[in-house]
């Protein structure tokens, strides 16, 4: 950790002056990897810590293989992109969300490899990344520990099957929650290659694109994603693909009463 900081300092002092300002801002989560996160995700782009970008997650992760994380970026203007980052992880980037016509809100479950800062960054239309986060303690091992395989031998039978639900919220938004059956293997366990959903798009029932999500290795197996849409469309189509090229599709409709 010290080494990475030294390397980073050496690096930016040679190449970058704009990043200099950023390292003078103290990381509120005091993470040893923050400089490296800046180097990877916010190099040469404007960013700031912003409490209005909220990450809600348990303070202690009971199950490091699936830690629920909810991120919301309200009151900062139109959000074009959101990313979820875990500082101390073999795969810091968890998800990249393009809210487009949906709310700047995303909920997912992730694998925690060790206690770490979990952050969300939201890019507003002026190009500035607003960054919030929370520190989560936990036993870890979610990405790499040899564990009881989440995907049993029958995973292929259910691969890409989607369950979903819609409901209206009091604030006038509609929430979509989907679960996609997928092992989401990181490639670090039991000699099983990395195998994860790469992309998921949400359209209305006429096919107009509402949002896109790119997901990565640390998203928990059989991922559950939640999205919100103001007003709502009363029905959605989902389309996705994993890194092996398996496609899946589903239509999510309101519950028939």
């Amino acid at each position: 950790m010290t080494l990475s900081r030294i390397l980073f300092l050496a690096f930016f002092s040679f190449f970058s002056t704009s990043a200099l300002a950023t390292t003078e801002v103290k990381d509120p989560l005091n993470s040893p990897m923050w400089d490296y996160m800046v180097e990877q995700f916010f190099k040469d782009v404007p960013w700031k810590f912003d409490d209005r970008v909220k990450v809600i997650t348990p303070k202690v992760a009971e199950d490091s293989a699936r830690v629920p994380v909810s991120v919301r970026a309200e009151g900062i203007g139109k959000v074009e992109e959101m990313i979820v980052i875990v500082d101390l992880s073999p795969f810091p980037k968890v998800a990249h969300y393009y809210p487009m016509k949906t709310e700047p809100y995303l909920e997912l479950r992730l694998k925690l490899n060790e206690a770490s800062a979990i952050r969300a960054a939201a890019k507003t239309s002026d190009g500035v990344w607003h960054i919030g986060g929370m520190y989560v303690d936990g036993a870890g091992g979610g990405c790499a520990a040899p564990r009881i395989k989440v995907a049993g031998p029958g995973w292929a039978d259910n691969l890409g099957k989607v369950q979903g639900r819609l409901w209206k919220r009091k604030n006038g938004t509609e929430r979509i929650r989907v679960r996609v059956m997928h092992p989401m293997d990181t490639g670090l366990v039991n000699n099983i290659p990395a195998f994860y959903i790469e992309t998921l798009s949400i359209t209305d029932q006429k096919g107009a694109l509402l949002a896109r999500l790119d997901s990565f290795e640390p998203v928990a197996a059989n991922p559950v994603f939640s999205f919100e849409i103001k007003g709502g469309h009363g029905g959605y189509a989902l389309k996705g693909r994993d890194n092996n090229g398996n496609d899946f599709r589903a239509i999510v409709l309101p519950k028939v009463k």
Partner: peptide, 22 residues
């Protein structure tokens, strides 16, 4: 989990070609 996600989805499963993916 299972209860809250029940019933309302039509799962189309794996295998359909993403049109225009090429």
């Amino acid at each position: 989990m299972k209860r809250t996600l029940a019933a309302t989805t039509i799962a189309l499963g794996v295998g359909a070609l993403l049109a225009g993916a090429s």
